[in-house]
Design a protein around this nucleic acid. Structure first.
Lengths: 220, 220
DNA sequence: TCTCAATGTAGTCATTGACTACATCGGGCG
DNA sequence: CGCCCGATGTAGTCAATGACTACATTGAGA
């Protein structure tokens, strides 16, 4: 800690995440970060070309972490494809609440406008995983009438919008006391909508009385 | 135009909207605005206390305009409550594409964090109108099993999320050529889901078999 | 006509991002 | 073993910006 810091890059990312969680991206300043870590104001430039570069790095990490988080949440071995998809959606929203810095940096307009290959690839991997899960759910009877792309975007829009609402102080002020957990479950039930699957003709065999019974073939 | 501008306040709002539409909120500067309009750098402070005050004014105008826009789009006299709700949703997303400055200022985190009474009221009016439309749709058989609040938030999250996706360059890059209009229609069909209503017991008389017929094209 | 509130101007300061030149450290190579 | 050089951090600087203060101009109404 004398002249060289040790791992300034990592420290910058961690401190930035803490600041963003507290004050949002708008409250982040490179000079403030340097001061917090006890280095000179120019030190961060050795690790990040500019402010967007730091945010983009955080955003890329966030997409990768979100991928692991949703994978872990959706990987219950006994879940049928519909429950799997619902679990992915619930995990997405919970992740946004538990890791606000990842959420905010990942959706910052400057970052999206200046995305690099690493960020695009991390984003693309999530989309591919989601599309696979969507296909599996459709094969199990969910929204079979819709194009897979529309069905995927429908689910993605719902969870992204719900996360946005839960991060929006104006919305939070209007719905008042609502418990986020109950809201997430309730909304995701409307997105996945097992009743509609049972009402239409299911592709796999589903007994019309069982609600969440196990369709064993959960295609990873 | 010699010493006094005439209507600087209005000119500032209009120019700000144009800048935001082009470069986003991040590209907006009060001094740049003043220069564009040929006034001194301190002139804007006579009409807006600070930058957030200007954005908040734009956001409030935007919520009011969105209310009128959706009301106009959803007010087809012969539409049933489900089509009405779907029209509101489609209008929301179209509005966000046609008026990006209203959309972006209205969802800026600084603005949401520093909302004043006027903004909260404009927001609340939209929520009330949406809740009424949701109640009507539920009375007509839509998602009757869900609490009205959950059903409303489900629809709101879907359209807000879809708008966010359509404004996100990374998403746009991944879905490629997709036509926004077709996407909006396709996703809203999944949100409103007339088939599920007809499959369960409808409150109003609905003939099973017809899928998308009957509704006059909600073009315009 | 005179007054004064509304509106615009000029000057200033602190903060911030970004750039350049210089200092220090430490590992690999002669 | 010692030197060299790339990596890392420092100090200084500049332009852009938001926000503040003091002053100037206008025009409507008492």
């Amino acid at each position: 800690m004398t002249y060289h810091h040790g791992n300034l890059r990592k420290a910058l990312l961690e401190r930035a995440a803490a600041v963003i969680a507290e004050q949002g991206v708008e409250g982040l300043s490179l000079r403030g970060l340097a001061q917090d870590l006890g280095v000179s104001h120019a030190a961060p430039s050795r690790h990040f070309r500019d402010k967007v570069d730091l945010l983009r790095t955080l955003a890329t990490e966030g997409h990768e972490a979100l991928g692991r988080y949703t994978f872990a949440a959706g990987n219950q071995p006994d879940a049928d494809p519909l429950e799997h998809l619902a679990a992915l959606g619930r995990a997405y929203v919970r992740f946004s609440l538990e890791h606000p810095a990842y959420y905010r940096s990942g959706r910052h307009p400057e970052v999206a406008a200046q995305a690099d290959d690493a960020l695009k690839e991390a984003y693309g991997k999530r989309m591919e995983a989601l599309l696979r899960a969507t296909h599996a759910a459709q094969a199990a009877g969910w929204r079979q009438d819709a194009p897979a792309l529309h069905a995927m975007i429908f689910g993605l829009a719902a969870v992204r919008g719900l996360a946005a609402l839960l991060h929006d102080p104006i919305f939070r002020g209007h719905v008042g006391d609502a418990d986020p957990g109950a809201l997430i479950d309730g909304v995701m039930r409307l997105v996945i909508d097992p009743a509609a699957v049972r009402a239409s003709a299911p592709a796999e065999m589903v007994e019309p009385g069982e609600i969440t019974a196990g369709a064993p073939d959960a295609a990873s």
